[in-house]
Design a protein around this nucleic acid. Structure first.
Lengths: 223, 223
DNA sequence: CGGTTTTCCGTACAGTGCACGGAAGGGGGA
DNA sequence: TCCCCCTTCCGTGCACTGTACGGAAAACCG
């Protein structure tokens, strides 16, 4: 009886039931662990204990996976609760920044692919309605929303490249020295000091944000 | 006389003398023509009629080439002439945007790599000294510079992904329709109209920039 | 002329995204 | 119960990537 349970291998490596969600979750985890450069379809499949080509049942391409992963993490931002528009925007944009810091591969992706996923659209809706409620409309409204999201994307992108560059403490010291010497010929004392000493991105982010919001305030209709 | 000029092959494929500049120039041309995705060391070498590995005499890695190409195109921005700080910044940042539009692969790169090349440093110096002359200093100065460059980077990045998405006219119509339907459930009339109809990036860019500059003005010391 | 250094580059290797087509399993109809 | 189809899984193969290595050729210098 060669088909006896004792000879059959029912415990053969249990097939993982793949789903799109499982794939996306694993993709986010892989990107967090290895960064955008270390992300590959083979590595993703391995993490799911599946064959590489199995992924392509649920997804048309690697780009699909990245788009889905991107919208997934955008969904980590909490829905906006009611409140005065300025505080609301500060909270939402601070959370955007935190998401991009938790998932440092995000800014490079947003610089490449349009954000059209449902969570991204929902986020954009929050900005539009907050600023519309504040009193903006038309081209000014569009420009204000664009400015805010451009700012947060651009800010975290450069923040991330900085953290990447100085990842290890030795590298930190070395790079800071090099940058300092690098800038020496060009920049006057004040600016150099500021540049090399700007470890406090939190404060700088909020300062810049306040700057923009103050600019927006000057555009509000009187009353 | 087998060595007669008639039998020798002095016109054998003339060795191109490679130099770092020639490589960088060709890299920019290749990136402009094929985009960041189509750029490869083999394609670059072919464009220079050289063997792939010859490049590595002048450059340690592909990343080196990209860094050099990046700083090269940043150098296309004209040096700042003297003038009132606000006009100066508008001119410089408008030129930054134009460079990034001419070379659409730039924003994705700046989102990945720190800008430490000589031309990038010179550019940063311009911003610092303009705003210092305007009256800013310390953390506010750093934040203002960071805000402006984050804004321009972020703005052009999203502008570029939009142009990419709607590259062909058919795609344009189709995408606009899809985006419009996509947003239908979520966004109220006003915002949707603005979003779908925002082809005029030039105006939007200047509006957002003015917004930020007005915010900066509120930070100037009295007098 | 001889030797050293610089430049060029063919080959090879480990890795990539994904097209193709086959196998295995589950579900439904006869 | 048998058969067929359809979904899911995935091994193999292809064209391509960056670049390590080492050899050949050329250029320069004594």
């Amino acid at each position: 009886m060669p088909e006896s349970i004792w000879f059959r291998d029912d415990d053969r490596p249990r097939r993982p039931r793949l789903t799109r969600e499982r794939i996306v979750t694993a993709a986010v985890a892989l990107l967090d662990a290895e960064g955008g450069a270390g992300f590959s379809m083979r590595a993703l499949a391995a993490r799911l204990r599946a064959g590489t080509m199995s992924l392509y049942e649920y997804v048309r391409s690697k780009e699909d996976v990245l788009d889905l992963a991107l919208d997934e993490v955008i969904g980590e931002i909490e829905p906006a609760e009611a409140g005065p528009w300025r505080e609301l925007l500060v909270r939402q944009l601070t959370q955007s920044r935190q998401v991009m810091r938790r998932h440092p591969w995000v800014p490079a992706l947003t610089a490449t692919r349009p954000l059209l996923g449902p969570n991204a659209v929902a986020r954009s809706r929050v900005f539009y309605s907050a600023l519309a409620e504040a009193g903006l409309s038309g081209a000014t409204l569009v420009a204000a929303v664009g400015t805010l999201s451009s700012y947060v994307n651009g800010f975290v992108a450069s923040e991330n490249t900085w953290w990447d560059t100085v990842r290890t403490p030795e590298a930190d010291a070395e790079i800071r020295g090099k940058v300092s010497r690098h800038l020496d010929d060009h920049v006057d004392e004040l600016a150099r000091h500021a540049q090399v000493d700007n470890g406090d991105f939190d404060a700088q982010f909020l300062l810049g944000l306040d700057l923009i919001l103050d600019g927006i305030v000057t555009r509000l209709p009187p009353g």
